[in-house]
Amino acid sequence: MNRPSKRLLGRRELVDFPAFALGGVEAKVDTGAYTSAIHCSNIHIETDAEQRAVLVVELLDPGHEGADGRPLTFAEFALRDIRSSNGEVQERYVIRAVVQLYGENFEADFSLSDRSDMKYPVLLGRSLLQQGRFVVDVAKRNLSYKAMARAAARRARR
Rank of each mutant, 00 (worst) to 15 (best):
M1G: 15
M1A: 14
N2Y: 13
R3Y: 15
P4H: 14
P4R: 14
P4V: 15
R7C: 07
L9W: 04
G10L: 06
R11Y: 06
R11G: 10
R12I: 15
E13T: 10
E13R: 04
V15G: 12
F17K: 00
F20D: 07
F20S: 10
A21M: 09
A21N: 15
A21D: 13
G23T: 13
V25L: 14
E26I: 11
V29D: 09
T31S: 11
G32A: 10
A33F: 04
Y34A: 05
S36N: 12
A37I: 11
A37H: 01
A37S: 10
A37E: 13
I38Q: 07
S41P: 00
N42E: 14
I43G: 01
E46V: 09
D48V: 04
E50H: 05
E50G: 11
Q51F: 06
Q51R: 14
A53V: 04
V54M: 11
V54L: 15
E58I: 05
L60G: 03
L60K: 01
G63T: 08
E65C: 03
G66Y: 08
G69L: 06
R70V: 03
P71M: 10
L72V: 14
T73M: 15
F74G: 03
A75V: 06
E76L: 15
F77Q: 09
A78F: 01
R80M: 14
R80C: 08
D81N: 13
R83D: 06
S84D: 15
S85K: 07
S85G: 10
S85H: 08
S85R: 13
N86G: 01
G87A: 08
G87C: 05
E88T: 13
V89G: 06
I95H: 04
I95F: 06
A97K: 08
V98C: 11
Q100M: 15
L101I: 13
L101F: 06
L101V: 06
E104K: 06
E104P: 00
N105W: 03
N105S: 09
N105Q: 11
N105G: 03
F106S: 05
D109C: 12
F110W: 05
S111G: 04
L112G: 05
L112T: 06
D114N: 12
S116E: 11
M118H: 12
M118C: 10
K119D: 13
Y120P: 02
P121D: 08
V122Q: 05
V122F: 10
L123R: 14
L123E: 14
S127G: 02
S127V: 00
L128E: 09
L128H: 06
L129W: 04
L129S: 06
Q130H: 06
F134N: 10
V135W: 02
V136E: 14
D137K: 02
V138F: 02
V138N: 02
R141Q: 14
A147M: 02
A149T: 02
A149D: 06
R150T: 01
A151S: 04
R154W: 05
R157M: 07
R157W: 00
R157G: 02
R158E: 00
R158Q: 04
